[in-house]
Design a protein around this nucleic acid. Structure first.
Lengths: 110, 110
DNA sequence: GCCCATATGCCCATTGTGGGAATATGTTCG
DNA sequence: CGAACATATTCCCACAATGGGCATATGGGC
């Protein structure tokens, strides 16, 4: 799973949300590190809908502007849980590798 | 950072390695989950070399076959450490979001 | 002799990402 | 009032990264 999709699904864990708000959530949740481009967002949402991880959840008009709402499907939720597990495993693996890397033999017995 | 690059850099933490062995390391380190396609590997290595995260570390001939060795640069190592931190932060964030998601109110007081 | 593992290289298609710009309404500020 | 900016979505198009297919070449096992 790529970054944009990860943040979209993560933003949707708190309930239905519309596109523009997802961009703001992604930025907030990542501490400002992630900037989700609009084009990427809508392209991803369309793809995720086709894959059944996200579903359209009604259009609403707020002060003249249309909002398209999206929601996580059960499949989307379990996919995100799976991703969390995978990320955790990756962290464990790199950390292990980094801690036992040859370069670390700097103090030694001396 | 994408999956293939992550596993390439992780494989190289234990010292210089040649292409084919990196593929096997990636598979082993990921518990068989990651299959690094040959084309992706060499394309990535070339890119990583250009970016200064990896450097060519000599060609050797073993039983008639040429092996191209590659090694992590200090930049590559710190990039991987940074990536580990980012992954850890992502795990923390999703887990938090998942634990406080509306759907979890199922047991309640009852 | 044939297949498989090792080891790399070239060609090319697809996927996901993302820049640019258009559209349209509401708000803020000089 | 006009300009700039935030909200909210859409279309067009370029590009980086991924990866499939195939070619090449050697050595080992059946």
């Amino acid at each position: 799973m790529r970054e944009p999709v990860f943040w979209i699904l993560t933003a949707l864990t708190q309930g239905r949300q519309h596109g523009y708000a997802i961009i703001q959530d992604a930025s907030r949740l990542s501490g400002g590190a992630v900037v989700l481009p609009v084009t990427t967002l809508y392209a991803s949402l369309e793809r995720l809908e086709k894959e059944g991880l996200v579903r359209a959840d009604g259009d609403e008009v707020v002060s003249g502007r249309v909002r398209r709402y999206f929601a996580l499907t059960p499949a989307g939720e379990s996919r995100l849980v799976l991703e969390a597990d995978r990320l955790e495993a990756k962290v464990f693996t790199v950390r292990s590798q980094l801690s036992l890397r040859p370069a670390l033999i700097l103090g030694g017995i001396a």
